[in-house]
């Protein structure tokens, strides 16, 4: 039984390091292509949108409005511009987690993908914190007294690690469980029992982790950058 993320082909070589096309990178490209095609489709449909929504337009407007309301509700005012960012990371993580249903290796079961997403959120957090609070942002590291500085620094360092490892561990755990299940059961049972497990590990956990990643990013950003 092989649980590793297999190398499919050699892409290029940089500074003596070989960069391979892995299974998760391939499914990342599939997810990207699907989402870009859907975005172009919505953009073309946008011309024929009417003031009174119906059908497809209803669904698109509902999705965007739900995320905008969530940003307003959990982050307060002044973060309206971030609605698009949160909608994109939520949609990307959700579609990535659901690729496991098609038998692909989910992109989020690769630590590189989740670490990149987490660093993006943490980068926005620090950028907005510096841009909105200026000197007060740096003073918070030395509160209440200066010996607390290493603890504040440690807290900031663990934020991206915990954010990325949570998503990575949950999705990779699901992948490993399915590898074991498909090895374990004899031929006819493989079509019956994993169905229920797919409903929990892929559908439920996938949606929950996408939601939690988005909500935790919102919480981190609003804690650092809200104008109180």
């Amino acid at each position: 039984m092989d649980l590793a993320n297999k190398n499919l082909a050699l892409l290029f070589e940089i500074f003596g390091t070989h960069v391979y096309l892995t299974q998760s990178l391939l499914s990342t490209w599939v997810v990207m292509a699907a989402m870009i095609l859907f975005a172009i489709f919505v953009k073309i449909k946008l011309r024929s949108f009417s003031p009174v929504p119906s059908g497809f337009q209803n669904a698109v407007e509902f999705a965007v409005e739900t995320m905008d309301n969530m940003v307003k509700g959990s982050m307060g005012d002044g973060f309206g511009a971030l609605g698009g960012y949160f909608f994109s990371i939520f949609a990307f993580i959700l579609v990535s987690n659901y690729t496991a249903l098609l038998g692909m290796r989910p992109p989020t079961s690769d630590i590189s993908t989740t670490l990149a997403l987490a660093l993006l959120s943490i980068g926005i957090m620090h950028f907005l914190g510096v841009a909105r609070h200026k000197g007060r942002y740096f003073r918070e590291y030395f509160e209440p007294v200066w010996p607390f500085f290493p603890m504040h620094l440690m807290e900031e360092l663990t934020k991206p690690i915990s954010l990325s490892f949570r998503l990575f561990g949950n999705i990779l755990g699901g992948v490993i469980i399915f590898e074991l299940i498909y090895e374990l059961f004899p031929f006819p049972l493989r079509f019956v029992i994993p169905g229920f497990l797919h409903a929990y590990f892929d559908l439920f956990v996938g949606a929950l982790q996408a939601y939690i990643f988005t909500v935790l990013s919102m919480t981190f950003i609003s804690l650092k950058a809200s104008a109180d």
Partner: peptide, 15 residues
């Protein structure tokens, strides 16, 4: 849900 996700982090570190 949020607090369960944060609690779960320690278990994920073990995994």
């Amino acid at each position: 849900f949020i607090s369960c996700a944060i609690i779960e982090t320690t278990a994920i570190y073990g995994l």
